[in-house]
Design a protein around this nucleic acid. Structure first.
Lengths: 181, 181
DNA sequence: CGTAAACGGTACCGATCGGTCCCGTTTTCT
DNA sequence: AGAAAACGGGACCGATCGGTACCGTTTACG
């Protein structure tokens, strides 16, 4: 195979776990979809939980790298994060935020999987605060927290309403929030 | 037993499915916690899915009845919905919105369970629009949609950050959004 | 009081869950 | 070319899943 088993597993995990849910997809399904043998799977991961964790790490890294790059392309305006997130949502069959959905499924806040998802959210918030600070905004932390609320709200409502209008609403509220500061 | 089996099942389902997730809790656990026999369960519900659906219907009805009453108590100001929702969140071990979490777990939008959760969200939105209209606000539908974004954002972020600060942030943004119209 | 409905407990079913083990093949690297 | 690592397929395991059937007891009501 051109692509290694581990990467195929991570790709299949991201796709299947996102579109159907972590608990809804069993190992059999995962192996069939990725074309990886059962034994090979356990050579790469200690178990399903570790695959989920590795997939989230992988996704978190890629997502944030992409977000930084895209916002920079759009000029570095903090408000561009709303455009970037909206773009990403339009690409795939959108079902909300993978990290939020994972925390909804893996309820225990002390579970490593849950903690990784929460850490992703905190990292994005810190990045937004960094953007705001760079733009000369005071109280960047507080604004960033409010913007995360808007981003999560937009992602969730866009997910269950199956339209992307929510993103432009969120952006307009974020702009108003920034101007009011 | 003083309380009928069906009601004990619905109560246990609401508690367990909310705090641990629908797929994470099996029938055995549900029967043990509610003290209902296995056969009795199937005399009341055709299966687990039907219990989930009935529980959501039950919860939706109670929640919206409570919300109407509480907002009325608070004077009927549309912004009071943010206070009411925040109060409710402080009561229990908060883990976000049961309906949003359920849609995250039951991914298929055509699944009866998913559809019930989505219908709840639409019903709450309609109620918010009704409040706004009664308060003489034009474009009530659009504001209601934006407020739902704020409410969902607050509930989600409060859920994974484990604090209720998000609700007051959401209310302040909602007030600004209303004033800007 | 007596009858019938509602009930809790349990044994059981096939299917599927995550996980282990072994075998034969393919790929990779020297 | 040859050795070693990586791999896919499948048999198998105990546990648990949702669901069915039958039992004896409790409860409610006429």
């Amino acid at each position: 195979m051109a692509v290694k088993a581990r990467q195929r597993l991570l790709a299949a995990a991201r796709e299947l776990f996102y579109s159907e849910g972590v608990r809804a997809v069993g190992l059999d399904r995962l192996l069939e979809e990725s074309g990886v043998g059962r034994a090979s799977f356990y050579r790469h991961f200690a178990g399903k939980d570790e695959l989920v964790a590795a997939m989230l790490d992988d996704y978190d890294s890629e997502y944030r790298t992409w977000l930084r790059a895209r916002v920079a392309e759009l000029g570095g305006d903090p408000l561009a994060v709303f455009d970037a997130v909206a773009e990403r949502a339009e690409l795939t069959r959108f079902r909300g935020c993978a990290f939020v959905n994972t925390m909804a499924e893996i309820a225990d806040p002390d579970d490593p999987v849950h903690m990784r998802a929460a850490a992703h959210k905190a990292a994005v918030r810190d990045y937004v605060a960094e953007l705001l600070t760079a733009a000369g905004v005071g109280a960047a932390d507080r604004i960033a927290a409010r913007w995360m609320l808007l981003l999560d709200g937009a992602v969730v409502t866009a997910g269950y309403q199956r339209n992307v209008q929510a993103f432009s609403e969120a952006k307009s509220m974020a702009g108003a929030d920034l101007a009011a500061e």
